[in-house]
Design a binder for these strands. Sequence first.
DNA 1: CGTGTTGGACGAACGTTGTTCGTTACGAAC
DNA 2: GTTCGTAACGAACAACGTTCGTCCAACACG
Lengths: 249, 249
Amino acid sequence: MVDRKERGEGEVPAPPWRRSRKPAQPRRQLSQDLIIDTGLRILDVEGLDALSMRRVAQELDTGPASLYAHVAGKEELLELIYDRVLSEIRLPARDPARWKEQLRAYALEVHRVLGAHADVARAALATIPTGEHSIRAGEFLFGLLVEAGMAPREAAVAMDRLSLYIVGDAYEASLHYARMRAAGMDDPEEYFESFVAQIAGYYRAIPPERFPYLVKHVDDLIADDGEQRFRYGLDLILDGIEARMPRDP
Amino acid sequence: MVDRKERGEGEVPAPPWRRSRKPAQPRRQLSQDLIIDTGLRILDVEGLDALSMRRVAQELDTGPASLYAHVAGKEELLELIYDRVLSEIRLPARDPARWKEQLRAYALEVHRVLGAHADVARAALATIPTGEHSIRAGEFLFGLLVEAGMAPREAAVAMDRLSLYIVGDAYEASLHYARMRAAGMDDPEEYFESFVAQIAGYYRAIPPERFPYLVKHVDDLIADDGEQRFRYGLDLILDGIEARMPRDP
DNA sequence: CGTGTTGGACGAACGTTGTTCGTTACGAAC
DNA sequence: GTTCGTAACGAACAACGTTCGTCCAACACG
């Protein structure tokens, strides 16, 4: 952040015949890790919409073409960033006797990590998870269900559905985050207030004779925030899984 | 599709001083409906990635600027297309006594419609539903839950979660559809085969000592197709809702 | 120590994209 | 018959992902 591109300001231009030898710049050394880090930082600070190859290159004081030696393209970069984020999730030792509790904790943990890097979920749903840390999470989830007594084939689907729910919810949340940024706001609470007010106003304006239930219960529609909704749906799914577990009291 | 732009081929160019009067073209009349229809057709045939303002304009024999008189921008156009698709869902008369059955049928119906316009779900998750038909669906869902005896505030969250699940699954499916198209395939079955084989091969190649469960049960991981997975997760949620319904046998 | 070779860095450019500006010309209202 | 609002439109802008060809620094080898 200290030696940004500043040429063209306060400098005497070099004579054109001097074939522009770079004076003492010992040629930056890029690396995939450096590119991923930079991309993740941009994504955290400025959001997914601001994350472009050019933006990453600019942060690294180079041109966009330089990145392609380390990264196949934007899609791969997003997958790599996503997997780096997943590396932050902490997994406990599996304890099949407490499978439901652990499943719940796992979901909340993943949800927390995805929420911490607000916009990454918006890229996550678009990638097929084949990264190191993604598999690590899958092994935990799948192993826990199987050890708890679920048939492997059913456990596979249950894992898939639970993951979809977690990422889907995080995706939706990150959309709101993007909207907040687009509106120029910084405080999530302030945005939530205005968003809720906007929705409420809209629902109050629709014809009550056609949509009586929605209009009558507007306040209930906007009562719970994102975290409460996520937990409710999570328990819905977990209870459903529990009902399918063999020999359960 | 018959009178496409063909000037510049086989025609003597008009003298430059003739200020290019359009000869007999009675000025196309655009409309929002026409634009939505065109957009939906492109989305169905060529996918979301091919749907650009320029592409729509081209299909209408005009320039992209002409669209902005009827549509605020691409985002609004996508919302309008999405709501038009939602207009295809058929809703029965509500029967609270059979709420679970109807909820299930509703979910399958929405899923079917979203699947019929393969790529629309990829745009759906990105929009906040405020269209006519979206509200209509919401009223059905919400009313059904409340009439079945659920407290309105809880019904609001349950509706939200169920909707998220449906759209989220359709979104994931449409991603695969896009991948299929990108791979140049046409047959979904063929794509499914190759995709499954690819995933299986990948999972078989990861170190078994670190991920024993995943490696051992590769075949189970890829056993069920998208429709079966959707139904399993749906029943998971519906059972969870049932458990929360008051005074249920 | 000299010489080849290789792979990363990079400037420039291509083909798209969404959107805006300023102008034109039609159709309806007076 | 004139006026006037507004839809249509051509051109352009800024930004995007990606590719091509060139150039140089560092390594391997004799």
